[in-house]
Every structure is written in C-alpha cells, then in structure tokens.
Amino acid sequence: MAKINNKTKIEVTDGVLIPARDDSSIFSAWRIAFYGAISVLVLLPVLSPEPYCHVFKFVVGFNEDWHFDFASSGLVKTFEVTVLSIICALIIGLLVGLGRISRYPVINRICTVYVEVIRGIPLLVQLFYIYYALAKFVKIMDISAAVIAMAICYGAYISEIFRAGIQSIPKGQMEAALALGMTRSQAIYRIILPQTIKVVLPPIGNEFIALLKDSSLVSILAVSDLLRRGREYASTAFYYFETYTMVAIIYLILTLFFSRLVAIMEERMKTDVNQG
C-alpha cells in the first residue's frame, strides 16, 4: 500500500517550468535565467551597439531616435496574435469542453471528433491550411488567419483542460445542486463552472505560455512578429548570430516573466480557496 502512495506524479508540460514558492532550487534557477537574460539583453547593446542595438530597435519597433513605432513593432504583433488567440481559444475550449461532457450523443461526438482531428494535425500545417488552402473560398487577412488557426488548435487542447477540470469537481456538488431543485444547466453555470475556473486557471496559464512560443510559427504567414522582424533584419544585414540571439532572449524573458505571473496567480488561488 505504501508503495502506491509514494508514487510521484510526473508532470510534463509544454510551457516553461513554473516555479513554486517552496521550491527554492527551481526558483533560483528561474532567477538565474530571468536576470541573466535581462542583463544579456541590456549588456549586449551597450557593449557593442553595432549590430545589437540596431537589432533590438528593429525587432522591438523603435526607430532611429528611440521613438516607439506601434505599427511596425514585432513585439506588439506577437502579443496581438497571442492575446487574440488565447481569448478565442478559451471561448472555443469552454464550448467544446462542455460539449464533451454533454449528454446529447451528437454534440458529444462532434466535439470529440474535433479534438481528435485537430490534435492530430501539426500546428504549422494548420496555419498553412487556413491561410492558403481556405483562401480559395474565403478571403481571410493575414493576422486573422493566424489567430483563427491558433485558436482552433489551442481550443482543442484547452477544451481537454476544461473537461478534466469539470470532471475533477466532486459528483456530490452536482447531486446537491440537483437536490436543491436546480436544473442541470443551472447547476453547471452556478455551481460547477465557478469551481472549475479555479482548477483550470494554472494549466491555462501554461497553455498561454506555450501559445506565446508557438506564435513564432505565424511568421511563415508573412505576419511581421518578433521572429519575422528578426529574419528581415538578418537577411539584409547578415548578422545572423546576433539577430537570433536577441530574438531568443526576448522570447525567453517573455516566457519567464509570464511563468512567474502564472505561479503567483496559482499561489493566490490556493490562499483564496483556503480562506473561502
């Protein structure tokens, strides 16, 4: 019996390692990576402005005299794609997640097939498909094509999180709600979903970080995100090593920053649950 209890749970996720407060070694690893990346990001342009400073300005979207140009910023484009995609993916994910626990076989089957199909196609292929293949029938602008493809893909993954989250709520909750005279849908919206949100927020935060990284794939659709801005710079200035170093560090800082945010959020959730 003891052996079974001692079994450690192995969790491997797509996102970066999210540090827990009490785990000091992981936290310091995060610290080393985060502050190290920031100091490299600051030091390289200061020590050798040509080309690091130019790369930084070009990629992040400053013009020569450090005026921030919103429209040409690769950083803004990356965020635009990521945030819009995660919002759409959450909506799709919630609907499909509910569909997957639906009692109606048709809805259930449709949602399950959707998840199976989408999870079986590489995101890169999906992006090409929605951008070039579907363009035969409907005209989708570049950024919306990217957002639609990312949302459809991540919607499938997030729906699985929602489904697991809903199923993790003890059955007694639903039974009690039904016993109080609520209908099934009332019980789901008033009792089950509010509790589910607390359970699913950390894994969704993880998906957000994974999506931020995968958003670099949209650069193939001529969306001028961080990676494409970097490639544009490197292909004319020929500073390949310098450019991709800067792009990688900017991505690293972003993902580390958000992983910390997710960890803090998780912490808050825990205390909220304990107090409530």
Binding site: Y132, A135, D142, I220, A222, S224, R228, R231, E232
Partner: peptide, 11 residues
C-alpha cells in the same frame, strides 16, 4: 510584407 518565397507573395 516579406514572404519566404516569391510564389507565396504572388499568391
């Protein structure tokens, strides 16, 4: 707008 291949730009 920069493309990986000219054919994609033409498309």
């Amino acid at each position: 707008k920069t493309y990986d291949e000219i054919g994609l730009a033409i498309e």
